[in-house]
């Protein structure tokens, strides 16, 4: 930069220098992307192979676009089981999630120790994918819906616990102070000021968790945790893509219906 020897008072400011962090960040991003995408070190992303794959997949595609409609009767039972799994997991999981949320918000936690412990537990619970829970609980309870229910309960604790705890973090703490100033115990103050403030949000998250469970039950069924997923797994293993496609369509419809109801309810709640 060359500054004029006698600068007038309203000189144009020099263009602010770009921090070295920006190009360094972009370079790091590109490097990681190349590394992760390359055939040698990473997943081997290549466009030609993609097109070759699409050609090979033609028969699959044809089957997928020609669903085997007459198989619908066999799906009713598994769907009802999926519904049972989703309901029980949402009810039990969300109830537990509320307790976890109260423990893991700075505002409502009864003490530092329970706050830190709750936070650690919630982080671990959230870090495990739903399917991994299902695998472990199939080992614990053996094959059947019970494993699916318990897996989804933990999954819901993670999702709803985090969302609710963040909602509690965001509430106005004035009423809590007012309750304490009136001589209330901590538990009473939380019950009377925090709970009513977040209850509508919590119910909305729980409805959302129910939707997620319907989707997830597809997946947890893969490892033998009951429901429609188990049927899907059998169809996939048997290369019955026409049945796969019917199942996917049915799930699409069920999720769509549940989602519409739950969105309407959520809108009235919050």
């Amino acid at each position: 930069m060359t500054a004029a020897p006698t600068q007038p008072a309203s000189a144009r400011p020099p263009k602010p220098p770009i921090s070295w962090k920006v190009p360094a960040g972009i370079a790091a991003f590109l490097l990681v992307t190349w590394w992760a995408g390359s055939g040698r070190f990473g997943v081997g992303l290549s466009i030609p192979e993609l097109f070759a794959g699409l050609e090979r997949g033609q028969r699959i595609m044809e089957d997928l676009f020609d669903p085997r409609w007459q198989a619908w009767r066999g799906l009713i039972g598994p769907f009802i089981e999926t519904l049972r799994i989703a309901i029980l997991a949402a009810l039990l999981g969300c109830a537990a999630a509320f307790g976890m949320a109260v423990l893991t918000s700075r505002i409502s936690a009864p003490g530092l120790r329970s706050f830190l412990a709750g936070k650690a537990v919630l982080n671990v619970v959230r870090s495990i994918p739903d399917l991994l829970y299902a695998m472990v609980f199939v080992a614990v309870f053996s094959i059947g819906p019970l494993a699916g229910i318990v897996a989804l309960i933990l999954f819901n604790i993670g999702v709803v616990g985090k969302l609710t705890s963040e909602t509690i973090d965001g509430i106005d703490t004035g009423p809590l102070e007012a309750a304490q100033a009136a001589g209330a115990r901590h538990s009473q103050a939380v019950r009377t000021s925090v709970v009513p403030s977040v209850l509508p949000n919590f119910v909305a998250y729980s409805l959302y968790a129910f939707e997620l469970n319907l989707r997830a039950s597809l997946v947890v069924g893969f490892v033998g945790a009951g429901g429609i997923g188990q049927v899907l797994f059998v169809a996939l293993n048997g290369f019955r893509y026409d049945v796969v496609s019917l199942i996917v369509i049915c799930i699409f419809i069920v999720v769509f219906l549940v989602e519409s109801v739950s969105i309407a309810l959520r809108r009235r709640l919050v």
């Binding site: 993609l50 699409l54 796969v244 996917v248």
Partner: peptide, 24 residues
């Protein structure tokens, strides 16, 4: 509405076993 796992199975059967199917 399509779960990743179902997509993964479809991609595996199209382009073969391996991480590319997962990434897609």
């Amino acid at each position: 509405s399509l779960p990743e796992l179902v997509l993964a199975i479809l991609f595996v059967s199209m382009i073969g076993l391996g991480p590319l199917a997962g990434a897609l």
